[in-house]
Design a protein around this nucleic acid. Structure first.
Ligand SMILES: [Mn+2]
Ligand SMILES: [Mn+2]
Ligand SMILES: [Zn+2]
Ligand SMILES: [Zn+2]
Lengths: 126, 126
DNA sequence: TTGAATTTTGCAACTGAGTTGCATAAAATG
DNA sequence: CATTTTATGCAACTCAGTTGCAAAATTCAA
């Protein structure tokens, strides 16, 4: 799994353009290929490090192109909109402290913020 | 769904004692009750705020008693062990900045660290 | 205390994401 | 070409989580 193949290219092209992470079912609607093939290509690309995996706890795993760089998300509790966000100081201090205090060597982290987007704040709903 | 009922009490008792978050299948092995009932009780307790939900992206959702307080996790890539961790400054600065810069009002966040626990570092494995 | 109304439980059938085995198609290699 | 390797497709499966409905347990008011 490393060839430049039609399915693989379609997935990558789609994810490079998309502003928010996509699930496999969502990808499949656009790419229109075999389910298994898509799962296998994605697994392969994750291992190669060219895709990132996200799980917001709603039962669907989502993927983004790694070319977008490491970042986190703002997820609206009301409308479900997902925005990307890059932290000023990306937890380097915390990770160093964790190693010093707990002897746990952090190699990666996953951080997502939940709340209300600009629109859904003014809507006064919920 | 707010009564003090046998199934509910068993789940709570189990989660209060347990040091790491448990999935529904895991809970069911101990509590030995109907699957649907457990899911419904857990959903109810989450709404009441006495249970926290965690998703580490491995396809299983896990739950902890809220009496443990808000915290995060150190998840070992090698042995799967899960440790709790409380941050010194729990992202309050970041959340304030997000509101100022992006107009997104953060109400909660989810942060998990992945890496290698003390044992798995010395094992030199993987 | 009795009976209707409400809540909880259990079962069975279903959904939907993700996996696996196997057979075929499409490169790559030489 | 012929051989080997890798990618694709299909069908059948697993497993977490959901839904509808009926039975049991509680609550509460007559
Ligand atoms: Mn980060
Ligand atoms: Mn926190
Ligand atoms: Zn919103
Ligand atoms: Zn470990």
């Amino acid at each position: 799994m490393k060839r430049s193949t039609p399915v693989r290219n379609k997935i990558l092209k789609l994810l490079r353009v998309c502003k928010y992470p996509l699930s496999v079912p969502e990808i499949n609607k656009k790419v229109k290929a075999n389910k298994t093939t898509i799962y296998r290509q994605i697994e392969s690309m994750i291992k190669e490090g060219i895709l990132f995996k996200f799980d917001f706890g709603d039962g669907v795993v989502r993927y983004e192109s790694a070319s977008n760089g490491h970042h986190h998300h703002l997820i609206c509790n009301n409308c479900g909109e997902i925005e990307g966000v890059v932290l000023d100081d990306d937890l380097t201090r915390e990770e160093k402290l964790i190693f010093e205090k707990r002897n746990f060597l952090v190699t990666s982290h996953m951080l997502e913020f939940f709340g209300f987007c600009k629109n859904c704040q003014s809507d006064t709903k919920s």
